[in-house]
Design a protein around this nucleic acid. Structure first.
Lengths: 339, 339
DNA sequence: TTGAAAGCGCTAACAG
DNA sequence: CTGTTAGCGCTTTCAA
């Protein structure tokens, strides 16, 4: 930088102003000289130094439970695109859906000096999050709400989405509709459950505890829950899964029991599955605007960085039902209530 | 830090030595005092400052074409796990399979001051990579080899893998086996093509240019290529796709033409597909040890960081053929050559 | 074994 | 509009 300054016949401060300051803080001709010197020397500013000065790196951390999950992958991808556009890089961290790990990862990335955090929280209070809040690092909650503090939030309308999915099943004639969800502490799971119950009650069906199962968000958990449901004295005629990988597990369970979609059972999944249209007759899904969620989160974070005093914003994005072959009428002889 | 130093009655240099230096550079009792002071004050070292001093952040960049692709997702996930274990964080960057973007992302992450780069290269020479090499930032090539320089490399044996997949098809009786690949410049694509050709020639079948298609790694490209193949005067009786999403596209093409797996056509895919066992009769796949690839890459990078002079290492991991329902005999009446 | 002191390369406050 | 100067918080010679 000193070299550039000498070459341009100015001070390093001026070089800095040209490169990092507001456009017109420096006289155009001086600016020119500096720019020329920069080009000639092939000078590259040292971000590590800038980071120290600014007390933050131009990096966003995206903290999710599992980037292996296609939903979060898509989220990370869109955050990255949006962040990159604004000059930020993206650091990823997995919590594995464990509070302790969430706390640790939050502490890690905060220590790393990231400028902001995009968080899909496990939903439980933790020291890491508190520490982050205390240190004034802005946090945007994505997908899942965080109850313990008010953050800018990007979410989808899980209640309405679940309702719509269940409605489709009800319209097809189903009465015994099961729900398989992930960890109950996660806000999305609660919302989807509420939507499920609302839809049933709207049709005078009282939700049966036996038909509601919570596990984790992984495939195996969905498989296990589905097997349990299928083994019930009066099994459900339809299953609604509150997450994508769970649906995959459920389909596997059906295969094991040699049941077919939608003849023997109908299925609707919240969130789409890669190749979902190719599995069996196609897995009907309540899809979320994943890409938009990520870009919105990045936007909110940048807005917050620019104006720390801005009012807390919550963006709720709509879902859409993708009707596919996995929705059909209940099998004959299944317990259809009178009326 | 100064506070800690005062509290412990030592200098900041000593505090630094206790926290960052080799264990026994400081007398145990002094060490104790410092540690106690650290605990009492809740002191957290500032990594931004350390980064400036060290001229590098404890961050690895993982540069891939598309984290949306499940293969790379898994890779990122495992890199992250391994890196985290060694005290490094992971920055992700997408190249979208474009050389220019690869160059730009490489320049970006280098400027960001990452300690090392794990790269799945587009395979084409670019200024970004050269710059990185010039600046002595260690690079580990993962999945794909980089021709323009010799890097530590983690790859799978694509030739053997492809051969095995094709052999399975040949054994089932197929003679007209098509190949759908991604960009030819990518080393993996070339290797898989070679494996494909070797297997055919091993059975005295001369590869037909008409049955070999290259596009990109996305679904749509696979679909388009498959449609072309199916429209051939003498269509293939089996398709081998050199990548996962391509297979999804191919299956879609089959559906459009109302062809069924494996009755009308057999299919083998290089690299597994999420839910691949649930698509049709199950998509047979040459699977790669994705997780191991990521951890190996992180390991190589750390080794290189510890010993910049170490000999260049190349790890080739084995693939395995997962036989699933998409492999069947060719349909009756299909052109089976005599002999 | 420890302390003093010199930077790492940048930005921003303060003068001019 | 631009130069001087003072750090950001850490690590690492160099001396003691």
């Amino acid at each position: 930088m000193i070299e550039v300054a000498q070459r341009a016949g100015v001070s390093t401060a001026t070089v800095s102003r040209v490169l990092a300051g507001p456009p017109e803080m420096v006289r155009p001709e001086t600016r020119e000289k500096v720019l020329r010197a920069v080009a000639e020397t092939g000078y590259l500013p040292n971000r590590l130094a800038r980071n120290l000065r600014e007390r933050a790196a131009r990096i966003f951390a995206v903290v999710v439970s599992d980037i292996g999950n296609p939903f979060f992958t898509a989220l990370v991808r869109s955050c990255e695109d949006a962040a990159r556009e604004r000059g930020y890089s993206v650091l990823v961290a997995d919590t594995d859906e464990k509070v302790d790990q969430e706390a640790q990862r939050l502490l890690d990335v905060a220590a790393e000096g990231v400028a902001g955090i995009i968080l899909a929280s496990t939903g439980r209070q933790n020291e890491g999050l508190e520490q982050v809040v205390r240190s004034w690092i802005p946090v945007v909650a994505v997908d899942r709400r965080v109850a313990t503090a008010s953050f800018d939030t990007v979410a989808t309308d899980g209640r309405a989405g679940a309702r719509e999915g269940i409605e489709a099943l009800l319209e097809a004639g189903h009465q015994r509709i099961a729900l398989i969800g992930g960890p109950e502490e996660i806000s999305t799971m609660t919302e989807r459950r509420v939507g499920y119950e609302e839809a049933l009650r709207g049709h005078d069906i009282e939700p049966e505890p036996d038909l509601i199962r919570f596990g984790d968000l992984k495939e195996e958990s969905g498989r296990a829950a589905a097997l349990e449901l299928l083994d019930l004295a009066t099994p459900p005629t339809a299953i609604f899964t509150a997450s994508n990988l769970i649906a995959i597990g459920a389909v596997k369970a059906l295969r094991e029991r040699r049941l077919r979609l939608p003849d023997d059972l109908s299925l609707v999944c919240f969130d789409d599955v890669i190749g979902g249209e190719l599995i069996g007759p196609g897995i009907a899904a309540v899809v979320q605007p994943t890409y938009e969620m990520g870009t919105a989160a990045a936007e909110l974070l940048i807005r917050r960085l620019e104006d720390p005093e801005a009012a807390v914003e919550e963006r709720v994005l709509p879902t859409a039902l993708l009707r596919r072959g996995s929705i059909g009428p209940p099998p004959d002889g299944s317990s259809r209530r009178p009326g």
